[in-house]
Design a protein around this nucleic acid. Structure first.
Lengths: 346, 346
DNA sequence: CTGAAAGCGCTTACAG
DNA sequence: CTGAAAGCGCTTACAG
């Protein structure tokens, strides 16, 4: 019988580096590997007493099944991949970070691990490498472009995946907040407060989420029987130069309020207003269709739509793992939102 | 011979889900798996011509070795773990996100993948699970506490790891900027500008980095032959309530300038000053020992120490992978920094 | 330069 | 309820 090194109880000294395998446990107990395996997995018929003995022994030797071997035998990796965009400055928005944290939390709870990978708008070779090396059982996408390479690729390869975001394609499992409705409501509320000239400064319309936000803004106007003044709408403001110009233009048009499509643009707008000597909310009001901590702690605090990004991550992770394990719930998960009316619009 | 499905050239139709294995390639070519394996890895003697034929065939069938099987055979996972703290609000600082991106970039280039895991100050069970399941070959730690559980654990288990940060323990491979020196220089510079009453508002001294920053501040004073006024120093300001109180106190003591230990505290300090009606830099100057995009775009822009966080990640990733692959470079990697003197201190 | 065979550490269909 | 054996898809020491 292969000799097992006694677990080292003394502190500070080199602990056993856990090279104990299922065979060691089996030999120690005088049973077969099959039995040990079954005791661990709970699959197949096995006596309570045997399970107890196996568990006790596992405990004693601090045995942990090698998940790589398990993966090979099962043709499953127990890993999920998360694709983070690396073509935008991630550091600018805590969204992806918080979403990732939510995913990690649920994954650990469901005994999966999370591999991060990056994608660019027109380059998904790093994602492909991950998938083709068979290192993940599925993928979570964290954004959706109008012509989305990762989606196309994953569908074609028939890799399980879910999208944190929305898409017109019902075949895709989606997890998202109802941005359109939230933006519509916020816009309506502001109109309800008597504002009429509400400008919209939005980011890249290549991102589907910005399209939904713009739609919400338009709907908000239409619901009140009003028309949008196109001179107050600036989309595709992809850099601070564009944002600055947009702000200057809408100020010229006497905008009473500026709604920003997200926190990054909003921070940018606030800096421009500050520099131009405009005071919020006295000279002009400001709101944002997406909020981050910086907007909340800004002085004055900024009216914005708040969503629970970690929840988005946990729900997405759960749905993906269920999908991998055979559940076929393909419904879109629609999560809640809050409208925070703060001093910036009062 | 096992039949190989021809790669599907037609678009839109289900692509071959890459179930082709090394045996398929070997059979197709009428050689042994050994030969195919050698052609791929380049290990052992093998004729140029055979390599060419193997490569051509691999290309034709879009064969990708199953990295799980490779892992099992080699007792290596080709994964590195990154431990992100989940007990602080990560969303508040882009540091970890940017560091992670740097790690992902170098890992992909070196043919490794990145598994993220989380650690809390007094709970590292998720990290332990990752390590004990044999899912990673090494770990990157992204912070260092005074009594750091992950470090203790990884040392004891003899798992390869590197620390993004500094430690007194020379046995630990460290990757860091010279925070102490940078903070010392910035403090000296401000004193050189004629400022005498420079307050310090710092975060949790349980984080080693804050200790180094404080030391730098003290050294800055001492270098100029001056003593620090203890009434101007507030450490362990772990919540905005403490920060607010600290600001009020140092204002009472007629501080001319406030240095913040990091971007989060600085954002907080700026909000408090704004609320109290103090204007920067006219009424009081402000600087930060760590900068993020928000400080840079703030109005006025904030004087701060800038470091390349992505570089920190790429260097850490590279060092860890080298360590895993047998290199024994245990020297501390000290990366550069920049002092950005901006309007907030002018 | 090439191959047969054992091995990495699990799982599971099959037989008892 | 339990076990021997084959298999997951690679690598590599050994023999030729």
């Amino acid at each position: 019988m292969k000799h097992i090194i006694e677990p080292d109880k003394s502190k500070g000294i080199r602990a056993n580096t856990s090279k104990v395998t299922i065979s060691d446990i089996a030999n120690e107990l005088g049973v077969s590997k099959t039995t040990v395996s079954r005791a661990i997995s709970g699959k197949g018929r096995i006596s309570k007493e045997t399970v107890r003995r196996v568990m006790e022994c596992i405990e004693r030797y601090n045995y942990r099944p090698n998940s790589i071997a398990k993966s090979l035998a099962n043709s499953k990796t127990y890993n999920i991949g998360v694709a983070l965009p690396s073509d935008i400055n991630l550091g600018n928005t805590p969204f992806f970070q918080n979403c990732l944290l939510g995913i990690c939390e649920i994954a650990a709870a469901m005994d999966y691990d999370v591999i991060v990978t990056t994608v660019k708008e027109n380059d998904i070779k790093i994602l492909k490498r991950l998938v083709e090396n068979h290192k993940v059982d599925g993928i979570i996408l964290t954004r959706n472009l109008t012509n989305d390479l990762p989606i196309e690729y994953l569908k074609q390869r028939e890799i399980p995946f879910v999208l944190v975001g929305s898409s017109e394609d019902d075949a895709i499992i989606q997890i998202d907040n109802n941005h359109k409705e939230a933006c519509e409501k916020l816009t309506s509320l502001l109109i309800g407060e008597g504002l009429r000239k509400i400008a919209l400064i939005a980011g890249d319309t290549n991102h589907m989420v910005n399209r939904y936000r713009c739609e919400g803004y338009f709907n908000g106007y239409h619901n009140q029987g009003l028309d949008v003044d196109q001179d107050l709408v600036y989309v595709d403001c992809s850099s601070s130069v564009y944002v600055e110009q947009a702000v200057i233009n809408v100020l010229k048009k006497q905008a009473e309020c500026i709604i920003c499509s997200d926190d990054v643009i909003c921070t940018n707008v606030l800096a421009v207003l500050n520099e131009l000597g405009y005071s919020v909310p006295d000279d002009i009001k400001v709101a944002s269709f997406y909020e981050s901590i910086y907007l909340e702690t800004h002085n004055p605090p900024i009216t914005a739509i708040g969503v629970d990004v970690e929840e988005l991550g946990t729900v997405a992770g759960k749905r993906l793992i269920e999908l991998i394990e055979g559940s076929e719930n393909r419904f879109k998960a629609v999560l809640g939102y809050e409208i925070h009316l703060r001093r910036s619009t009062q």
